[in-house]
Simulated scan of single mutants.
Amino acid sequence: MQVNLITIGSLKADYIQRGSDEFSKRLSRYTDLEIIEIKAEKLRSNLSDAEKDKIKKQEAERILKKMSNTAYSIALDYQGKHMTSKGLAKSINNLQLQGYSELDFIIGGTLGLHSQVKDAADHVLSLSNMTFTHEMARLILLEQIYRAFKILNGEEYHR
């Protein structure tokens, strides 16, 4: 299965980059992973709601161009549905059984995702009730995808 991680912005924190590299390397045993980084809009402080929406819309246009027409797409949003690690593994397995060979995970930028992206996605997923930076969300998601593949292959992984 091809897994695409479509994300606004690049990683800046070295420790997150190292963690992301580690899980990307581990995932290479199970899947082809492509990380697609989309340029983030420059932000200034004290943006109005209209300005924030305009920025999210500009980022959404770039995200939508990168989403595959044949992939099952999962957008990350704090208002999405929660899922356990075993639930994610089961979902990936079910998608493969349904004939999907490609999976897009989408992570927004600092302001989150525009509704256009969430509406276009097949599923909207929340990683937690807590709020994470988009960089942390990327690391956590990569770890959870890795964990899902370990579960699917019946392999041990720490709890």
Rank of each mutant, 00 (worst) to 15 (best):
1 M>P: 12
63 I>V: 06
49 D>P: 10
118 K>I: 14
51 E>P: 06
51 E>L: 04
152 L>N: 13
62 R>P: 13
4 N>A: 06
92 I>D: 05
138 R>Y: 14
25 K>P: 08
14 D>V: 11
137 A>H: 03
15 Y>W: 00
49 D>G: 04
67 M>I: 15
118 K>D: 09
12 K>Y: 11
146 Y>M: 09
156 E>A: 15
29 R>Q: 11
10 S>K: 10
35 I>R: 01
101 S>C: 11
31 T>H: 07
80 G>K: 04
123 H>A: 15
51 E>K: 01
5 L>A: 04
46 N>A: 11
6 I>A: 03
89 A>R: 04
135 E>C: 02
31 T>Q: 06
24 S>Q: 07
109 G>H: 05
75 A>W: 11
93 N>L: 13
1 M>H: 13
29 R>C: 10
42 K>R: 12
114 H>L: 10
154 G>Q: 09
81 K>M: 02
119 D>L: 06
90 K>D: 14
112 G>C: 00
73 S>C: 06
138 R>L: 08
21 D>A: 09
42 K>G: 11
62 R>E: 06
151 I>T: 07
97 L>W: 00
6 I>R: 03
85 S>A: 02
124 V>H: 06
149 F>D: 03
72 Y>N: 07
112 G>D: 01
125 L>W: 05
106 I>T: 03
43 L>D: 08
110 T>Q: 09
14 D>W: 02
159 R>Q: 09
155 E>Y: 09
96 Q>I: 11
109 G>V: 00
128 S>I: 00
26 R>G: 03
150 K>C: 12
62 R>L: 14
76 L>S: 00
110 T>V: 02
25 K>V: 02
7 T>D: 13
10 S>N: 12
35 I>S: 01
14 D>Y: 03
118 K>C: 13
118 K>Y: 11
149 F>I: 04
52 K>A: 13
10 S>M: 04
82 H>Q: 15
